[in-house]
Simulated scan of single mutants.
Amino acid sequence: MEIDAGNLFDIGFRIGDGISIPDDLFMSDGPWGYDDAPDTMLVHTYEVNPNEEPFHEDEFAVERNIELVGSTNAYMAAYRALTPKFSPINFTEYQSLKLKAKGTGKLIIRLVKESVTDWGSQYKTTIPLTNNLQDYSIPFSNFTSINGTDFIPNDITSIVFTMLAETGEVETKEMTIQHLRFSTTSSQSEDPLNTLVVSPNPMKSSTTFHFTSQRLETVEVLVYNQLGSLVKTITHEATLGANEIKLNRGTISSGLYFCKVQSDTKLYKITKLIIE
């Protein structure tokens, strides 16, 4: 039996024959909410509405839109849990966060990682809002942390949207977030030449990175573990066309790793590497 739940927040139903004990099933999506911690924050409007725009098959849809209006002399924040219990989701197959938004002033967006326990070290970016709805496509590379490591989207639990009272006085802040989704494309150009291939994969003692460069430039191959810690950096003078970089295992432990080419001119997809 298949039931199309559409964009419902939750659904529950019972299956039985009227004689035996029935089976109950309840399903729920992650909730929207807002942070009312600041003592001086006064919420004027808080609405969660269905999303009416279609999503593409290769997108991870974050259902429902939000409108939040409040007065504060500190900050106003809204959040969207990606699962009911804030369980992490691996988004390494995606490239960007896309949304439509409008409001007053700057909007700080945090992609909250379960493995980052210090709130100040969470990865964030800032976009300017206007009074008119605008489309935003934010590559994952735009999300930065004070710890200086690149963002690896392997354990995202929620998205937090924050607006600050920049003057220190009570200000009215407004944010409208619509058509929120994770995408396999980004605002930066992507094509088949922007693929990083690792062979052999899985590897034992060594492997080789293969990628194509369209210009002479200095690039870095960065290898991260599942906690987002950088474990290996290889600097390479890329030549026009096909390039190869050898990685020797050395003291790197067995496990799953994430590899990327850091370039000033191109966006390469993050590639998984298994070390046996």
Rank of each mutant, 00 (worst) to 15 (best):
P84W: 05
I245W: 01
N51W: 05
V221N: 00
T239M: 07
Q95Y: 03
E217S: 11
I245N: 01
V219K: 01
S96M: 09
F86D: 14
S254A: 07
D29S: 12
T251I: 11
M203K: 02
L107F: 08
A238T: 05
D39W: 10
S137T: 08
P192W: 04
D39E: 12
G30P: 15
S145E: 08
A101E: 06
E237S: 14
R80I: 15
I152V: 15
L97S: 03
V170T: 12
K260T: 15
V112W: 02
E220A: 14
A101K: 04
N131W: 06
G103D: 08
L129C: 06
Q262I: 13
W119Y: 10
D58A: 07
S183Y: 11
T176K: 09
V43F: 00
M203Q: 01
G12W: 02
L273K: 02
G30R: 05
A61T: 08
E114Y: 12
S145D: 08
L129D: 04
G12Q: 08
A101G: 09
T207W: 05
Q262V: 15
S158C: 08
N142V: 06
Y224I: 14
M203C: 07
S205A: 11
T233H: 01
P128D: 14
R249I: 14
S28D: 02
I108N: 04
S115C: 13
D150F: 10
P153W: 08
T92F: 07
K204L: 12
T212V: 15
A37S: 15
N243L: 10
S121K: 11
K246I: 15
K124L: 12
N243R: 07
I19C: 04
E190G: 11
E52D: 13
E47G: 00
T208Q: 02
T271D: 01
W32H: 10
D24W: 10
P22K: 01
Y224E: 09
L111M: 15
N194M: 13
A77P: 12
